[in-house]
Amino acid sequence: VTLFVALYDYEARTEDDLSAHKGEKFQILNSSEGDWWEARSLTTGETGYIPSNYVAPV
């Protein structure tokens, strides 16, 4: 399991995006899409895309 933590708040801009709150942890499901990674929030269980530069490894 690849875990990352949000460094900043991010507000989803499309229905495919996933909002993130600073300190929230995510499981990365797919990081092969360049700057946008598919992730699952460990807080809400929701999945979507987050900007890779907004997260760091735990």
Results as ranks from 00 to 15, higher is better:
Thr47Lys: 09
Glu33Cys: 15
Gly48Tyr: 05
Phe26Gln: 00
Gly45Lys: 04
Ile28Leu: 06
Val58Lys: 02
Ile50Thr: 02
Glu46Ser: 10
Asp9Arg: 05
Leu7Asp: 00
Thr43Ile: 10
Pro57Asn: 05
Ser19Thr: 10
Leu29Phe: 08
Val55Arg: 00
Pro57Met: 09
Leu7Ile: 11
Thr47Ala: 06
Leu3Trp: 10
Ile28Arg: 02
Thr43Ser: 12
Asp17Tyr: 13
Tyr49Pro: 02
Glu24Ile: 03
Pro51Trp: 09
Trp37Ser: 02
Ala39Tyr: 08
Ala6Gln: 01
Ile50Cys: 05
Arg13Asn: 08
Arg13Asp: 06
Asp9Ala: 08
Val55Ala: 03
Trp36Gly: 02
Thr43Asp: 11
Phe26Thr: 00
Tyr8Glu: 08
Leu18Gln: 02
Tyr8Leu: 08
Glu46Gln: 14
Ile28Met: 04
Trp36Pro: 05
Ser32Thr: 12
Leu42Thr: 07
Glu46Arg: 15
Tyr54Asn: 07
Ala56Glu: 09
Ala20Gln: 02
Pro51Phe: 07
Thr2Ile: 13
Lys25Met: 15
Ser19Phe: 05
Lys22Arg: 11
Ala20Arg: 01
Ser41Lys: 08
Glu33Pro: 10
Ser32Pro: 10
Leu18Asp: 00
Ser31Asp: 12
Thr47Gly: 02
Phe26Arg: 00
Asn30Ala: 08
Ile50Ser: 02
Ala39Glu: 00
Thr44Glu: 03
Ala39Ser: 02
Arg40Leu: 10
Pro57Gln: 08
Val58Cys: 11
Trp37Tyr: 10
Leu18Cys: 05
Ser19Tyr: 06
Tyr10Glu: 00
Lys25Thr: 12
Ser41Ile: 04
Phe26Glu: 00
Asp17Asn: 09
Pro51Asp: 05
Leu29Met: 07
Glu11Ser: 10
Asp9Ser: 07
Asp17Ala: 14
Tyr10Met: 04
Pro51Gln: 06
Ala56Lys: 09
Thr47Arg: 11
Thr2Lys: 12
Val5Trp: 07
Tyr49Leu: 13
Val55Trp: 03
Lys22Glu: 07
Asp16Ser: 14
Trp37Gln: 03
Ile50Pro: 01
Ala56Asp: 03
Pro57Ala: 09
Tyr10Pro: 00
Ala20Phe: 15
Ile28Ala: 01
Trp36Phe: 12
Leu42Ile: 10
Leu7Pro: 01
Ala20Glu: 02
Gly34Thr: 11
Tyr8Ile: 06
Phe26Ile: 04
Glu46Asp: 08
Asp35Ala: 10
Ser32Phe: 10
Thr14Lys: 13
Asn30Tyr: 08
Ser32Met: 12
Pro51Val: 03
Gly23Gln: 02
Leu18Val: 07
Lys22Met: 09
Tyr54His: 08
Ser31Val: 11
Val1Met: 13
Asp17Lys: 13
Ile50Asn: 01
Glu46Thr: 07
Ser52Gly: 07
Glu38Pro: 05
Thr43Phe: 10
Asp9Cys: 10
Thr44Pro: 00
Ser31Leu: 10
Ile28Asp: 00
Thr14Ile: 05
Thr43Arg: 13
Leu18Asn: 01
Leu42Cys: 15
Ser52Pro: 05
Tyr8Pro: 00
Glu38Ile: 15
Leu29Tyr: 06
